[in-house]
């Protein structure tokens, strides 16, 4: 972990920490802590996120998620409360996004397409796959889920103001910048590096961005077709919950444009925009209107 504490400004001592987990860099900036408290908080966050990474990692043969993927085709697998809750949330998001967010995206195609791939039994806390070839991947869910948990922990620790960054694509704010009414986060222009394409103002809220990755590679899979989504725009979602922002931005990017407004109707209190960056540096911003 990289840890830095500065009390050069005695009114607002600031803590910075960063570590690597879930295949990305996680960063925290928080004010109002002593060095000891800041370090303690950063260490506890790192431990929690890494434990979560293990539980949800389908590539780790010893993880609960891997056990499900290995056995749930042939039997109903009992899982712990946290994993069951996560799967229930994923199922709710699958329905809420018309299937454009689906943790079964990695599954093999069937003759019936990509409909329901797994069944949850709330009484027994079990999961059972509906057909052979299903594999669950919580990668698109885990970052948002972990970011929610980190925000909770930072609040409980008594942070005045904090900003948490999960790999640049998901950002959550507690309070505001000590010298402003919000945290001002610039979304980078995709064609002109280092240039701001859009400013997002966060105050006790979160944002998430989906699109090609930062090297310009298409990487998000359309759960309905099983193919890579080849959109050149960015989809930005803002709202209260970091988890909802993360899920929604992924689903909206995967969904056809006509479908995006339909999805947004399910998520009151969240705003979504499409950002088109052009070679010359100009940008076009289109709001995804849930009233359409």
């Amino acid at each position: 972990m990289q840890f830095q504490f500065s009390d050069k400004n005695p009114h607002h001592p600031v803590t910075y920490a960063s570590f690597f987990s879930m295949h990305t860099r996680i960063e925290l900036v928080a004010t109002g802590f002593t060095e000891e408290k800041g370090r303690e908080l950063a260490q506890s966050i790192e431990a929690e996120v890494k434990a979560m990474e293990h539980r949800f990692n389908r590539f780790d043969d010893t993880s609960p998620m891997s056990v499900v993927n290995m056995r749930a085709t042939n039997e109903a697998v009992t899982v712990d409360d946290e994993l069951f809750m996560a799967l229930e949330l994923c199922e709710a998001f699958r329905r809420g996004t018309g299937g454009y967010f689906d943790v079964a995206t990695a599954s093999a195609a069937t003759d019936e397409g990509y409909a329901v791939s797994y069944l949850l039994d709330p009484k027994k806390h079990t999961v059972k796959f509906t057909h052979q070839g299903v594999s669950l991947d919580l990668g698109g869910f885990a970052k948002g889920f972990a970011l929610e948990q980190v925000c909770r922990r930072v609040r409980e620790a008594g942070a005045e103001n904090a900003l948490i960054n999960f790999g640049n694509s998901s950002v959550a704010a507690i309070g505001h910048h000590p010298y402003g009414e919000c945290w001002s986060v610039g979304v980078e222009h995709t064609k002109v590096k280092g240039t701001m394409a859009r400013e997002i103002k966060l105050n006790n809220g979160a944002m998430s961005v989906s699109g090609r990755n930062s090297d310009g590679v298409y990487h998000i899979v359309n759960p309905i077709t099983g193919g890579l989504v080849a959109g050149d725009e960015l989809v930005i979602v803002e709202g209260r919950s970091a988890l909802v922002c993360e899920v929604l931005s992924t689903a909206l990017y995967a969904a056809p444009r006509a479908q995006r407004s339909v999805i947004m109707k399910q998520y009151e209190g969240y705003t979504a925009t499409e950002l088109y960056c052009r070679e010359g540096g100009s940008c076009e911003i289109r709001t995804i209107d849930c009233n359409k």
Partner: peptide
Amino acid sequence: MPKGSGMHQLVEQIERGVMSNSVFAGTSWA
């Protein structure tokens, strides 16, 4: 490390008692 994270700029801003936007958000780090 991700390239050019602007989070460090926030530390410097707070140290100096100023605020401006930090450009670091974007799609998933490659």
